[in-house]
Design a protein around this nucleic acid. Sequence first.
DNA 1: GATAAAAATTGGTACTACCATTTATCCAGA
DNA 2: TCTGGATAAATGGTAGTACCAATTTTTATC
Lengths: 233, 233
Amino acid sequence: MNLKPIKPKRISDQVFEQIRELIYKGSFKPGQQILPERELALSMAVSRTSVRNAINKLVTMGLLEHRQGQGTFVSSPDNRPGNPLAAAMAADEATFGDLLEVRMGLECNAAMLAAQRATDTDLKAIEKSLEEMEDDLATTDKIGTGADAAFHMAITFSTKNPVFIHLMHNFYDFLFLGIKKNLTHMYMDREALEDVIGHHRAIYDAIQRRSSQDAFEAMRKHIAYVQEYFSTR
Amino acid sequence: MNLKPIKPKRISDQVFEQIRELIYKGSFKPGQQILPERELALSMAVSRTSVRNAINKLVTMGLLEHRQGQGTFVSSPDNRPGNPLAAAMAADEATFGDLLEVRMGLECNAAMLAAQRATDTDLKAIEKSLEEMEDDLATTDKIGTGADAAFHMAITFSTKNPVFIHLMHNFYDFLFLGIKKNLTHMYMDREALEDVIGHHRAIYDAIQRRSSQDAFEAMRKHIAYVQEYFSTR
DNA sequence: GATAAAAATTGGTACTACCATTTATCCAGA
DNA sequence: TCTGGATAAATGGTAGTACCAATTTTTATC
């Protein structure tokens, strides 16, 4: 028969999902203070209780941090404990090269699928991260890790594939640290940073043009470039 | 000087500690139902809110489990840690098609890397799984899920990439369920089963020949075949 | 201008009421 | 006796309000 298992959706869980997406997409950047519980409740038209439960869940998961009297803040992935991947990397059991290999497999396909399925909202989110990176480079001569990570996460969300998204959630801290390391090494190398920006724009263009082939190839080139960059110096 | 280690003892945290102790000490055994929130609040002379916050924390940590209308239960350590993937699939939030999409990205690359790095031991492990599948088909007219999953895991191990391997570990249960479903649908379709075996052998041959291109392509064909198989019936 | 007091902001607790789901119980009808 | 439905009870989930506690900002006072 194969009927459908009914799904009860708790309000706090829906709030939870929304806030988590905002964090991963970079609307709430690491270290930044998020909106107060009362305002969130008002915006989402739910009670403060539900918002509170959602936030508490994110706090015990380590994504947010409470400070009484001040507010709630996005905790930075650097000092987030308990991530087995980050631990493995700290123990030198996993290298950034390993990370890039996996990203090559995952993200090329993600870009391809994103080109087929991204909504206008998704495209805007991707473009926003892209513009943020460009602004960063123009004003501070470097690229913000948060914006870069948000760009890649936004593409993943565009695939609309729950398995992909779930995998990327577990992957985020690792991705963040890897990108941070990459960008740190490229610091002061203006040319490399501009190349990277160019790659990102090419990826975005391909997705926006709905050309899945080009999106795949652009992502492949981008990651291959980073691999090459670090293998030669 | 080393003065005061100020204690910001939140009430919910104290309740949290107490309940956790009870679980660890075994007063609340796995599978058992704990006292209702209202009774706990009464016993500890605190509000239900505080008890609720404490319990919620334990729930998101995976030690407890909520069932509306029934009560709160101590979750058994077996299914405690992280299998939100299987849960997501059970809730039909993720389909087998989603799984195949992700596998396409991951495993094609894994096969490619395996062709470059597999040791003789790895090759033997892969071949063993392959032969087991062939035996299964010859003797029982079907393919064992375990052998199929083992084949793919063996390829992942051959990549020697800790990140890949870690990801696949978290992925295994999901992979297993997916393969099982695939094989169940192909049951009695002798031709399809033989095709699948052929794909596996092609993958193995390519890896054994150290041809990373062929390995990538063989894996791509295999997964695409399964995708096609299920999209048309 | 410096310092103390007051106000505003924001997370933490408490309490109450009610909703939603599950289970148990009872009862009428075939 | 069995079936089905209605009812009630138990229990987690939401909502709303009020207030407490800590922090920051503003204001008042000297």
